[in-house]
């Protein structure tokens, strides 16, 4: 990936965060982030991807100055968030996981109130129209749906027209339409030069939005790269970056595919008549299997080809056990 020549919007180096002492740990401290580092650039979406409890929210809250770090260094637009003042906060927009909006408030007066905290805010009417807030402008925050609340929280984060935008689980509770609207807006903001840092446990979000992904597990960096780089992760040596793909098809049960496909490709019959062939499939492999069917007069009732998803990479790296 091409690193921009400008200085990054956020640099985190060796971040450590202990919480506690916790009664559940016999009064000991719990280390929720241990030595995490990342860089987020201007004009890019940087995603922190990890399971629940991986330390994503703690990490960005340390960057926002909401939590005090135990050790390590953080530079947000060149300043330390722990000591910076209103000048830095005016350049940074934050959308919290729980929204952080007062339940009794109505959307438009709330946005106007927050806009008043800035010298030159984003015109509230524009934000309202862009995020479809006018359709629920008379409803109090407490009665909004999850998706409406998320859109309002995004508007509240953007009203200062920030240089850096933090989004904690931005697609939580969004219906498909709102999700498309929010994702389009994020892409536009990125193209306009904003540095966007988001956390997500959804591979699909990261795959669709992120220019650069940090996979976080148990408070540590476990992998990083562009989505394309991560998708090539852990392929056998000498395979020169071919994608792992899965060929799914349904036909008569109990077929023996021995010798049809090369050794690297696994064929499993998940349930009777439903097969999955996974590996670095080549066009020649597809020709081989369809020729094999043709020779035997087999016509699959369904057939699809899927690339290896970021989810597979994530599970390979962070392990498949439930936490």
């Amino acid at each position: 990936m091409v690193r921009s020549p400008e200085s990054p919007v956020l640099t985190i180096n060796g971040l450590v965060k202990d919480v506690g002492p916790l009664p559940t740990l016999d009064g000991k401290m719990l280390r929720v982030v241990s030595g995490l580092s990342l860089i987020a650039e201007r004009g890019q979406v940087t995603a922190l991807l990890g399971a629940n409890g991986a330390g994503k929210t703690t990490t960005i809250e340390c960057a926002q100055g909401l939590q005090r770090r135990t050790a390590g260094s953080i530079s947000l637009l060149g300043q330390d968030p722990d000591t910076a003042g209103a000048g830095l906060r005016a350049r940074v927009g934050v959308m919290l996981q729980d929204g952080g909006l007062p339940p009794s408030a109505r959307p438009i007066p709330l946005l106007r109130h927050i806009a008043g905290m800035y010298q030159d805010p984003w015109p509230v009417d524009e934000l309202i129209a862009r995020l479809g807030i006018d359709s629920f402008s008379r409803t109090s925050v407490r009665r909004l749906s999850g998706g409406q609340k998320q859109r309002l929280a995004l508007a509240a984060a953007l009203v200062g027209n920030p240089e850096v935008l933090f989004l904690d689980e931005p697609s939580a509770g969004l219906d498909p339409q709102s999700r498309q609207m929010v994702f389009d807006l994020i892409a536009e903001l990125r193209n306009s030069g904003m540095g966007i840092i988001l956390t997500t446990h959804l591979m699909d979000d990261a795959q669709r939005l992120a220019d650069y992904v940090y996979i976080i597990d148990a408070g540590r960096n476990v992998a990083e790269g562009t989505v394309a780089q991560l998708l090539r992760h852990e392929l056998p040596a000498g395979d020169d970056g071919q994608h792992i793909r899965t060929l799914l098809f349904e036909t008569e049960p109990g077929l023996d595919f021995t010798g049809v496909l090369p050794d690297g490709v696994d064929i499993t019959e998940a349930r009777a008549g439903s097969y999955a062939a996974t590996g670095a499939l080549t066009p020649a492999d597809l020709a081989a299997i369809t020729a094999w069917w043709a020779a035997r007069g087999i016509m699959p009732s369904s057939l699809s080809l899927e690339a290896r998803s970021l989810e597979d990479v994530f599970l390979d790296i962070s392990g498949r056990e439930i936490r």
Binding site: W122, N161, Q177, D184, S192, M194
Partner: peptide
């Protein structure tokens, strides 16, 4: 872009 909220984006940045 989404059918909802069809207003153009203002002038960020």
């Amino acid at each position: 872009s989404a059918p909802l909220g069809s207003a153009p984006l203002g002038s960020p940045a």
